[in-house]
Design a protein around this nucleic acid. Structure first.
Lengths: 213, 213
DNA sequence: TGACTTATCAATCAAGTGATTGATTGCGAC
DNA sequence: GTCGCAATCAATCACTTGATTGATAAGTCA
């Protein structure tokens, strides 16, 4: 390589690296203190830079918010991208959605927590709504689509209404992450229940039989 | 903004009335600005009193939080109290739960919004968790109980697992109030979907409201 | 009426809190 | 070298915010 695009590690960080570090620190602090408890000084301290340096990279707090939102969006897209599942049955696709959320619950709870904080604020902050709303909308629509296909294919109940059913599934999952006793085992039970809630009872094959004894 | 209460120069309020007014103003402001955006000065202004007067009635912000939490708890209990429904079928009892939530959505959205703010904070505030946690726990347990009875009576699916199913219902309802397009009509569709999600598909007739022997 | 309590306010404090300023330092280009 | 720019920092401003203080008026009661 005679033309390195990314500069080698210097004593002084590049603007990109700094911004990434700032976003990470901000997200961690949002989880700890809540969005409204986010303080620019705390972020700077965690990154190990001066307040003025922080403001050099991220001029205003609004820009900081946008940075964090983008950071979260990028990480979420990273998970959902490039996983062609169109060839799977609707029921299998739905299980994949559950798998994805289980992965978030297991390895990226902080992401979910931060997202939850942003969501709460989005109710009264149009800018935030513009950041977070599309993410949630996309998720719900994706599930809605799977459900509609499943109704057509016979995987799911014929009387299933995709829109409210998708609301139900999304609400159940997000609600789960907020609730106490959000253990992996309890999520297994939840997803099993959700599966039973939407599946076609007239299907000849019954893969599972009821809840645990 | 809002007129600083051109209230008539009344005689001095009683301590109880003042506290009630403070709680009401605080709740309204929580809805508008979020819990973390709650400012004692704003509350005082809305009530029409001096900051020092506010601190006379509610010494610290923590006491204010407790006051608000108690206020919300009281209003919620007011709705759920004294509505003996044990004589109804489990399916009918569940519909009553949906009715209750529809009523909240219609006439007391502010209550739900404030509660949502408190819930968000309860994740990182043990005191708040002590206030809000029991409320949510009671609700979930109530639904769980109805579901268990409905499984036994045959109203609901035999393979329904009450605990995660209750999580699902609670999550679906709370999630609905947060989501966009939370219209009354959409709630109708949601509750219909939830009803179908739990009902026993082997029932010869659709379970309807009314007592059953 | 007079002593005592309750409710109220203007003024102020002390600790934040986002943002700005002016100077300093490291690094690449010429 | 040394010039210019990007990155950094110490100091500070202007404002917010929960809480306190000392004084004053409105009730209560003997």
């Amino acid at each position: 390589m005679n033309a390195p695009v990314t500069a080698p590690p210097k004593s002084r960080e590049s603007s990109e690296d700094r911004k990434a570090a700032i976003a990470a620190a901000a997200r961690a602090l949002i989880v700890e203190k809540g969005f409204e408890g986010l303080r620019t000084r705390d972020i700077a301290e965690r990154v190990g830079i001066n307040i003025a340096t922080l403001h050099y990279h991220v001029p205003t707090k609004e820009a900081l918010i946008a940075l964090v939102a983008d950071d979260i969006r990028a990480e979420l897209r990273e998970q959902s991208d490039g996983k062609g599942r169109e060839h799977l049955s609707p029921a299998a696709q739905l299980e994949c959605e559950f798998d994805d959320y289980a992965e978030l619950l297991g390895e990226k709870v902080a992401l979910l927590t931060a997202l939850s904080e942003l969501l709460e604020r989005s109710r009264r902050d149009p800018v935030m709504l513009g950041c977070v709303g599309p993410m949630m909308g996309k998720w719900k629509r994706m599930i809605e689509e799977i459900l509609a296909q499943g109704v057509a294919s016979g995987d799911f109940r014929a009387d299933l209404d995709p829109d409210p059913a998708a609301r139900m599934l999304v609400g159940a999952m997000t609600g789960f992450s907020r609730a106490p006793n959000a253990t992996p085992d309890n999520f297994k039970r939840l997803r099993a229940e959700l599966t039973r809630a939407v599946r076609n009872p007239n299907l000849p094959t019954l893969p599972t039989q009821g809840p645990r004894p």
